[in-house]
Design a protein around this nucleic acid. Structure first.
Lengths: 122, 122
DNA sequence: TGGCTTTTTGGCTATATTGCCAAATATATA
DNA sequence: TATATATTTGGCAATATAGCCAAAAAGCCA
């Protein structure tokens, strides 16, 4: 992998990593529904304000959200709503794997880890 | 956030987190181009075999890839190619932010961190 | 100014991730 | 059976992430 390519992969991965946390995923969906300030999000998420603030800063650093001060609060909104389209594909992945799991159970009963050589010593 | 919702966000975030690493992103693209075994990927990535193997295991655990043994090797391929569609949106995010950065420079010169109260003591 | 409210930052601990090496495992082949 | 090849696992050290509390910032209003 050449350096230039590696940098590109890093930039892309950084955005996915920023999205890869349940609270941040919740925030992304929520601020798409309507602009929200830290306070509101904190109440919805049910964590410390500082925790939510840091999650927002991760999202902002990744360029996923835009913040705008209005009145006494800072409102966050989604930069590129196309990221919401990821979800249907993610659900496909989850569903596909749920089905795979079902198949294993149907064919072979409760799936069990295969015996390894080490097991023979037990 | 109720428990049931939280579980769903965790499941989704887990998939994004699995994708959120440069090497794994590379692997995802590469095995879409053509099935690859660990050996081949190791050479392309330029890391230890065990490192690549663990990355593949993260992807497999997230249900993103399917492995199939054929001959002496194990070939990996993409489970749900729709994940590749994420990239164009990710590029939009990157481009949007590059432009934002340009605007700041054009308007206001080289952007500088604003002075904080703490700076006054220096 | 002094006291609110809203948000961010610093600092800390706990936990998770990454990447390497060495070793184990699995399988094919001489 | 012994050896070689392909892959995974265990263990370790370095680094990163998450979440809380306390405190700092920043701005509003009496």
């Amino acid at each position: 992998m050449e350096q230039k390519l590696a940098t590109q992969y890093e930039a892309r991965a950084n955005i996915l990593k920023a999205m890869g946390h349940p609270t941040r995923l919740f925030i992304i969906e929520e601020i798409n529904r309507a602009e929200r300030c830290v306070n509101e999000l904190t109440e919805m998420v049910g964590a410390d304000v500082s925790t939510v603030s840091k999650h927002l800063s991760v999202l902002k650093n990744a360029g996923l959200v835009i913040d705008e001060k209005r009145g006494t609060s800072i409102y966050y909104r989604l930069c590129c709503p196309c990221v919401l389209d990821f979800i249907s594909c993610i659900e496909t992945v989850l569903k596909t794997n749920a089905e795979k799991q079902m198949d294993i159970v149907q064919c072979c009963g409760i799936p069990v880890a295969p015996r390894t050589r080490a097991d023979s010593n037990k």
